[in-house]
């Protein structure tokens, strides 16, 4: 069971959390202006990287907050968690000095 650092409550067992899909996929301010191709990409196209993946989690059985997380999909190590709305961290910087 992973230990996940909730930005509000600190490290908590994985079972308290729900996965929320890829992070930093912004909904257009005015969807009506988005063409079909871009809207389809927004709805369905998601990254599946080998390595660092930015994803959303919710501390569902805790404070209830959604937050973002950078996880290495190779080692399953969560490199960083941060509050929703905070800027996406620099991937290269996150991965240096990370031992799985």
């Amino acid at each position: 069971m992973l230990l996940i650092e909730c930005p509000y409550c600190g490290p908590r067992p994985e079972l308290e959390f729900r996965y929320g899909g890829e992070a930093h996929v912004a909904r257009a301010a005015d969807p009506a202006t988005v063409d079909d191709e871009h809207w389809t990409a927004f709805l369905f196209w998601r990254g599946n990287p080998k390595g660092l993946h930015f994803e959303r989690w919710r501390h569902a059985s805790g404070c209830g907050r959604f937050f973002n997380c950078a996880r290495d999909t190779v080692s399953d190590v969560i490199v960083k968690t941060y509050k929703a709305g905070e800027p996406k961290p620099d991937a290269a910087r996150l991965m240096t000095g990370t031992t799985p």
């Binding site: 729900r18 929320g20 909904r27 959303r56 919710r58 569902a60 209830g64 907050r65 959604f66 929703a84 709305g85």
Partner: peptide
């Protein structure tokens, strides 16, 4: 509830 909280917390802030 999770769906509503999601939009409230992350889109319609």
């Amino acid at each position: 509830l999770a769906h509503m909280e999601d939009y409230l917390q992350t889109e319609f802030t």
